[in-house]
Simulated scan of single mutants.
Amino acid sequence: MGALDARKIADELQVVVGALVRRQRAVSPLHDLNLSQVSILKRLDREGPHTVADLARLDRITHQSVTVSVSRLVDRGLVRREPDAGDGRRKLLVVTAAGRKLLAERRDAGHEHLTEAIAERFTPAEQASLSESLTLLRRLID
């Protein structure tokens, strides 16, 4: 397979993955959160406590934007600020139980929708083919 074919596959893969992500977001309950807030919440849940400065650097957005998003998450009880044991001047952001619950609801809604779509739209043979292609897709991220 040549470079031209690889380019076409890459283009189509970006389109399909992007559309799939947008569809998953659409079926997940938003609970009045914007994408920046959801991204922050997911990162804190996945990676553990961070400072506002850490989040701004990691997501390549302004400190001010992160501060606004974090303030809304704190006001809603989804994130709390805790003193950093190593540096009392810093505050670490930690996901609360309510924040984890909201993320679980979003994951469950998206997972359920995707499971139903696979079961309803693909034959057993197509499901097996899709499963096999996941192995290849994983190699792209390793």
Rank of each mutant, 00 (worst) to 15 (best):
R90I: 01
D54K: 11
Q37C: 01
L130C: 03
V95P: 14
S69G: 09
A119N: 14
V95R: 13
L78C: 07
K42C: 04
Q37E: 12
T67H: 07
A56M: 11
P49Y: 00
A125I: 06
A56Y: 09
D84H: 10
T96W: 12
G99C: 06
R100W: 05
L73T: 01
R80C: 03
D108Y: 13
P83G: 00
L114F: 09
A85E: 14
E132D: 10
R80A: 01
D84E: 08
R139T: 08
V38H: 01
P83E: 03
R89M: 07
E120H: 14
R100S: 03
E120C: 07
R100F: 02
T96K: 10
D75S: 12
T62H: 13
H50I: 02
S65R: 15
L130I: 11
V74K: 03
L102G: 02
L78K: 07
F122A: 03
A109M: 12
H63R: 15
L137C: 04
S69A: 14
L130K: 04
I118H: 00
L103D: 04
L140Y: 15
F122K: 02
P29A: 00
E126N: 06
A85W: 12
R46A: 04
R90A: 02
G99D: 02
G86A: 10
I61L: 13
S65C: 05
R81G: 00
D87A: 03
A119R: 15
A117Q: 15
S65A: 13
P83T: 04
G110R: 08
L134G: 01
E126Q: 15
T123L: 03
T135F: 11
R121T: 06
E47K: 13
